[in-house]
Design a protein around this nucleic acid. Structure first.
Lengths: 153, 153
DNA sequence: AACTTCGTTCAAATCAAAATGAACAAACCG
DNA sequence: CGGTTTGTTCATTTTGATTTGAACGAAGTT
């Protein structure tokens, strides 16, 4: 099917398959579609469609339009693919890296105590390793805004 | 626990929890550990440990050492964290992007036929969208080697 | 050769994420 | 109002990924 491309794309970013299917269908469709078309064309449930569209709207990846003489919401793909990617970086990666900071600090503390108590050379080596990790952590955090900026133009 | 940091880290890259636990334990341990220590300290099964270590070795993220008068393999974390990240980019992202090329081409073909048949302006618009996608695809493929290079120093 | 220790493999169990669909709420229409 | 259409919610089911542990093989020891 022609939405396969989108399915595999969103999955790289940890989003469920149905999101890819819906976005793909809308991307490829010449005019905006109501929810029941999405349900019937993709063969997914009303629930999935509703939830999927809600997420895609929240990402700004689809928008809804009003069509004259039709009460139903009609959905359209926003061509701005970068929103999905940006969402991944900012909502999935960024928070984890930040949470990681605190935990690294805790590890550091543990290692320092261990070193003081055991005075082993091994413990000192561990301390050095953790410091190296912290550098990496910082490096990663710097990379993200760079990538996001690059994707945005 | 102090390996939490690593668990959450590897999960960003779609690797199982046990991988993070094992790598974390080795990272934090002052000297190389045999498999049964890993099993008992983390409370995971022999199977998990064996499989996890095999994967980590294949990534080059851990190495094994021989310790005199001990038959068992002893494992040590390779500090080179970038291997895990590089592995993610090269084995998980890259192939998908490449496979995507072919599927995009198929979509393009479908869209061209649709345009010829229906001659609708909608169909032409779809064609344009897909072309835009192809640009993005190329852009993404260029980004990866950049990131990898940046991470490697 | 029989026995132990170390490690791998793989079918089955477990667990978590996603999809389903029935029940519900809101908007519209006669 | 009663009836219909549209869309959301959420408890249950399904599905896929991870983990387990029993069985096995390889190597070492007596």
């Amino acid at each position: 099917m022609s939405v396969d491309f989108f399915v595999s794309f969103v999955q790289v970013f940890g989003l469920p398959k149905s999101i890819g299917q819906i976005y793909g269908l809308l991307f490829v469709s010449a005019e905006p579609l109501p929810m029941d078309d999405i349900v019937s064309q993709l063969g997914i449930s009303k629930g999935s469609a509703s939830q999927g569209l809600a997420l895609l709207k929240s990402l700004g990846a689809v928008t809804s339009q009003t069509i004259p003489a039709d009460r139903r919401e009609h959905f359209e793909a926003d061509l701005n693919v970068s929103r999905i990617v940006t969402h991944f970086f900012e909502n999935r990666l960024q928070p984890r890296l930040e949470h990681g900071d605190r935990r690294l600090e805790e590890m550091m503390e543990l290692a320092r105590t261990a070193k003081r108590e055991k005075k082993g050379d091994g413990a000192a080596a561990v301390l050095t390793r953790i410091q190296a990790l912290q550098k990496w952590q910082k490096r990663g955090r710097n990379l993200i805004p760079m990538v996001v900026r690059w994707l945005k133009r």
